[in-house]
Design a protein around this nucleic acid. Sequence first.
RNA 1: GCGGCCGUGGUCCAGCCUGGUCGAAGACUCAGGCCCUCCAAGCCUGUAACGCGGGUUCAAAUCCCGCCGGCCGCACCA
Length: 506
Amino acid sequence: MVHKHEEVMELAKRRGFIWPSFEIYGGVGGFYDFGPLGTILKNKIIQKWREFYVIGEGFFEIDSPSVMPEEVLKASGHVDHFVDAMVECKKCGTAFRTADLAREQTGKDIEGMSKEEMEQFIGKNRVRCPDCGGELGKIFDFNAMFRTTIGPGSKRVAYLRPETAQGIFIDFKRLQRYARGKLPFGVVQIGKGYRNEISPRQGVIRLREFTMAEAEVFFDPEDPHHPKFSNCADEKIRLWRAEDEVEGREKLTEVTAEQAVKKKFVCNELMAYYLVLTKKFLCELGIPENAIRFREQTPGQRAHYSSETWDAEVDTARFGWVEVTGLAYRTDYDLSRHAEFSKEDLTIFRADKKRKVLCHVIEPSYGIDRPLYCMLEHAYTTDGKRKYLRLKKELAPIEVGVFPHLNRDGMPEKALEVHRSLKSKGFMSEYDDAGSIGRRYARADEIGIPYCVTIDHQTLKDGTATIRDRDTAAQVRVALAELPSILRSLICGEVQLGEVGEPVKK
RNA sequence: GCGGCCGUGGUCCAGCCUGGUCGAAGACUCAGGCCCUCCAAGCCUGUAACGCGGGUUCAAAUCCCGCCGGCCGCACCA
C-alpha cells in the first residue's frame, strides 16, 4: 500500500508534523523539520524513552557535543571504517564501492587495502565497470561523516558525531566514579547524529541529521546479568537469526527471553533483557506487537565495533521492515581503543571481586525519527469518509479539544473558560470555534486528538459537557467540575469512556 | 553518484506537445461573515501558485541549458 505512505506524509506536511527542510530555497535531501505537532510528538517519544531508561533502568543521562575532534573518531574506528573507497567509470560515470567490485569480479577481499594498493589490484585484475565494461578511474574516498574544522585555520579537523555513544565512552572515567563502582551501570544520551548519506531517499527513514537515543550498559564480562531479568524472562520475542538469514531463510523463531539465553540465540542475559525492553517500548508507542521483530545482523553487516547486533524492525506499508533500534554487543572495543589512544586507564577496580575489570558494553541505540514515522503510519486509519490518527492517547500532541457547540448564547465564552482551565492544569488543550461542529471533530480526528469536549446549551443550564472519543465518536456527559480528573484517567487509559458518564443519545 | 520520469496556491489538479487569447482555471482546505441544537451541510467574501537561475524570442507556465528537489531502477546505508 504505497498509497498510505503518501496520505500519511501529505497529512504530516499539511497539519504540521513533518516538513522538508530549507523548502523556500528548494530543499536539501535528507533533512526534515518537525513542525509544531511533530515536535510535540517527538518530545513525547523522548519523554517515554526517558521513562524507560532514565527512570526505569536508573541510567545516567549526559549531554555532550555534536562536534568531535578527529582523535576521538580515529580511536573509535570511525575515521577508518566510515570511509568508503569509491571508483568511477571513466566511460559512463557510474560510481561504485571499489571493494564490492573487486569481490564480485575476482572473489578477493580487498577491504582494508590502501588506495594505491586498490588501484594496483584493479589494474592487475582488470576490474571493469559492471554496467558498460568501461575502464575505471581514480579511487576516491567518500567519508560518510560531515567534516569541519575547529577554530580559525584548517588544522584542527573535526567531524559531526555519527553516534552519540562516543561522548559517553570518552566520559567513562568520570561516569564510573559517579556510579561509585557499581556494575552494571548505564549511561544514556539523546541528541543529534549525522551521516552524510550518498543518496538519501525514503523521506524521514534515511536522514542526514537525525535524533537518536542511545544507552551504553557497562558490565563485567564475567557477570552479564541484569538484576530485573526475572521480570521479563517469560516475555516472548520474535527473532530472525543470522544463521537463517545467511542461508536465505526468512524464518522467525519465537522464544521467551529466558530460552533465548539458554539456547544461546543471544550473547547474554543483558542482551535478552534489552530486546524485551525494546519490544515493550515500541508497543508503548502504539506499534502492534505483530509488526515488531528482531533481526540479527550477519557478520558482514555488522559495524566494526560489534560482535553481535540485533535490529528491532517495524513493519511498514511503504518501506517494509524498517530498522528502528540497533542493539549491539560492543564488547570492550570502545573502552580498550580509547584507553590505547588516550593512554588513560579505563578499567574499574571491583573491590568485591578484588580485580580490575575492563567493562563490556551492550548498547541499545534508538532512532527517534523512524519510530515517529512508524507511529504515524500505524496510527493512520481510514473508516469510510473519516480519517484519523489512532495515536496512543498519552502520546497525542494535542490531548483535548474544546468547542462551543454554537457560536452564540455565551457558549464560546464558557468554552474558552473551560479551555483555559484545562491548560492551567497542564493539559495540551486546543480551542476551536471555526466551522460546523462536525468539521471541528474531523479536524481534531485528523491530528489524533483523543478527546473533544463540547459546550452546549445544557452546559449553561447544569454545568455539564460532553466528551467525545476519537476512535468511536461516542459521547458521554460529565460535570465540568470533574472534567480534569476524568480526562486525566481517560488519557492514561485507567478508565473507558463508558465508565465516566452518561452516554449521549443521538 | 549514474540513468529514466517529474516539479503550477496549503492539498489535488487543468494548461505545456502546437509560445501570444494565462492579467493562470477548477475542486478541496484555510480565513472573515451569514445561518445552524452534535459529526467535513449550505450561502457570501477573501488569501493564496508556474522550484531556482540563465538562454532563445517582439512575446515563455509552455521551447533550450544548468542547478535544486521528488519518484523509480542501479549503487550506497559504518
